[in-house]
Design a protein around this nucleic acid. Structure first.
Lengths: 149, 149
DNA sequence: CTAATTTCTCAAGTCCACTTTAGATCAAGA
DNA sequence: TCTTGATCTAAAGTGGACTTGAGAAATTAG
């Protein structure tokens, strides 16, 4: 629990700080999200900035972004130096615009749903939801949340 | 392609009308979303109302709801009779309130993200995003979009 | 120094939402 | 009628996001 003052955080420290499982943190590393250094014994050592990286991952995931997309944002951050505020601002601008698009889509679907349920036309043949769906329903296999907006 | 006028729609008809794969429609049946009757030869026959059911499934999915949750809504509809407008209105009211909650959560996260990125505090220890995340991040394994709001 | 904890790697397992494959049967047009 | 295309079942495969398990080595508390 005592984070080594000089050597950085252990994977357990990071897990405690973020609430993530140790296995998840290792998993993210294999997907290029973190790049910890190793100590003499081969154990991973993290910097404080990695807490922030993982926070971003968790936020983005809860908003429906996939890991590969998130990893894409992460490549916009320096791998072995703590990102500056400018780094975070840059990647979060694109992120924010995608969130906005997602909110707008959700709102328009909700509003149209009201109309469609009300008029009894909830059919892909005539319903106004048809086109938005066509655009939103692209993507590979697996759960199709609001990915790829 | 010629939908049997008396016998209802074939699974292929339904696939054409909804844009779903035949295999997906069969899969949904195993999850209790559709309950087609069988003809003499053992082939599935659907009613027009099933197009609407599948439309609802697709809409709900694109909004981040999981199949089991959607199946839950579907049990609120009559299995072997075409749902009335009142049936649809009833289940869509609950649905709509969940969508609203989802939109609100997304908006508040977006707004706080602006603040957190700006002030450089994007850390679970101090960031205002912490608590909303705690609530949103519950759930089993697998992709964790905005399920379980 | 020893015992208890952590961490290491790597392979395999899990859940969700489907798709693919295989072999057989059913339905419909020429 | 015949043949082509649709549908049937059951089982296995896929991709995303992780978790679990096994055995070994490193770290830390007492």
């Amino acid at each position: 629990m005592t984070p080594s003052p000089s050597g950085g955080l252990t994977i357990g420290d990071l897990a405690d700080r973020t609430g993530l499982a140790v296995s998840a943190i290792r998993f993210y590393e294999t997907h290029g999200i973190l790049h910890p250094v190793r100590n003499a014994g081969g154990h991973r050592r993290y910097g404080r900035a990695d807490i922030r990286r993982l926070s971003f991952v968790m936020i983005a995931q809860s908003m429906g972004f996939g890991l590969s997309e998130i990893a894409g944002y992460m490549t916009g951050l320096p791998a072995h130096r703590a990102p500056s505020k400018a780094d975070w601002t840059r990647i979060s601008e694109d992120f924010r615009s995608k969130i906005d698009a997602r909110i707008t889509l959700l709102q328009s679907m909700r509003d149209r749903l009201d109309g469609c349920i009300g008029c009894g036309c909830l059919s892909l043949e005539t319903c106004a939801l048809h086109n938005p769906l066509d655009e939103a329903a692209k993507g590979g296999t697996g759960p199709r949340a609001l990915r790829e907006v």
